[in-house]
Design a binder for these strands. Structure first.
Lengths: 226, 226
DNA sequence: CGTGTAATTGAGTCCATTCAAAGCTTGTGG
DNA sequence: CCACAAGCTTTGAATGGACTCAATTACACG
């Protein structure tokens, strides 16, 4: 079975496709990449939708979500500006993608992978590199979910966010407690209690109604996050 | 940054490389793929080793492992005959790979991805497809570790193994309880108790000193595994 | 200033863990 | 062939960390 044959679109001039999102023409020209804006809570695609596009985040935050039959939820990952998501092997998406905040995306039509790479070898390298990065993040998160305590999970999460989006030691959380809980395999109560304990222990400070975290003792956090 | 430049080997005739493992010449000719046999417990590569090769399993089972500083262990995945593992984005491996049973592998030298694909587009598709399959498996496992109970974890695990390696409804477990525990984020005691409970409930039977599981009520297991 | 949503805090419970011991298997040497 | 050792697995009892249920507080928005 082939990864990129399920949906065939028009041939994409791939040289332009993924590299310079900032330089993309602001049109609906599907051949290059469709700019798409969503409001907080809107769905990018749903579990089971035909897998015709993948996406790159221009601004905002997206969550990729899996739901169990009884409503339990697991958030695989949060995707920030520059991240690629929605690239999958099968013919349909295996998870749902939703806007955590207001979001701007660029959608790329999926195609036979070898064709894309033939058109632009660098593009192929980048696509593979981006997929391998996702895989690495997923593997890292398996350790968090499989073997870490609530405190350690939160420390890992905050450090990861800080590395990716911090200005100084301030992290403005784009998501709410329930998202963090469903990402870390905890409940919102435990998330809240853990943050409170971190404040008590001088690891962090909270600001802006708890939506900004200031890392006041990064080395202690790193020791916790392993 | 490019995924496949860290180690440059001689140009690989990729058309032969990944497709027909069974047809590979049994030589040490590194340009095609080195056959490698390991005994149970031996290391394929270690966390931090330079990432010069990736591997395809010919026979046996391999585990990929992450260790925390205090000895806690997470087994990302088990790799069975036909599976590819060890392909990573960075210059060094981020986990350890060990033989769960006696194992035969073929090692492929990593190379610039676009070069590989240029040599053989089908090979590129397969490599990407294999990576996306790993990513899908990792995401599926995140749900297991983040949101499922011990019973559900074990059900998911047994069904996955059955799908991949069962003869009829018999699954000969290649790994021991501690491996299962470290894969499912449980302790060996909980793994054992869960299996005992499944036997009591008529979901499975155990044979050959508990190293073979017979799925006697697959639909009930599927209901548990969601 | 009220209203609804999100976040925090508290009390009690439970599932999986830890600690402990016994039972099986397998391999080795007498 | 049996005895013994070493490792793996199972079982039991008690503990504990995160959960559930419940109530309160804080905040955003009309």
């Amino acid at each position: 079975m082939d990864a990129f044959t399920a949906v065939r679109g028009p041939r994409i001039p791939t040289a332009i496709a993924l590299r310079g999102v900032a330089n993309l023409p602001r049109t609906d020209d599907c051949a290059i990449g469709v700019r798409r804006t969503l409001e907080r809570g809107e769905e990018v695609f749903a579990d089971g939708d035909p897998c015709s596009c993948f996406y790159k985040v221009v601004s905002g935050t997206v969550r990729t979500v899996k739901l169990l039959a009884d409503g339990r939820r697991q958030i695989d990952d949060f995707h920030l500006a520059g991240d690629v998501f929605g690239l999958e092997g099968g013919a349909v998406h295996r998870f749902t993608a939703e806007a955590v905040s207001d979001v701007v995306l660029v959608a790329y039509r999926r195609n036979r992978f070898s064709d894309l790479v033939k058109g632009d070898p660098v593009f192929g390298d980048q696509l593979m590199s981006s997929t391998l990065k996702s895989l690495d993040r997923a593997h890292e998160h398996l350790v968090v979910l499989g073997r870490k305590t609530a405190l350690e999970r939160m420390a890992s999460f905050l450090l990861d966010l800080a590395r990716r989006m911090a200005r100084g030691d301030r992290v403005a959380l784009p998501m709410q407690r329930s998202d963090i809980a469903d990402h870390l395999g905890l409940t919102i109560e435990t998330v809240s209690r853990t943050l409170t304990q971190m404040v008590r222990d001088g690891l962090i400070r909270l600001a802006e109604a708890g939506r900004t975290v200031i890392l006041t003792n990064k080395s202690a956090l790193q020791h916790l996050g392993s």
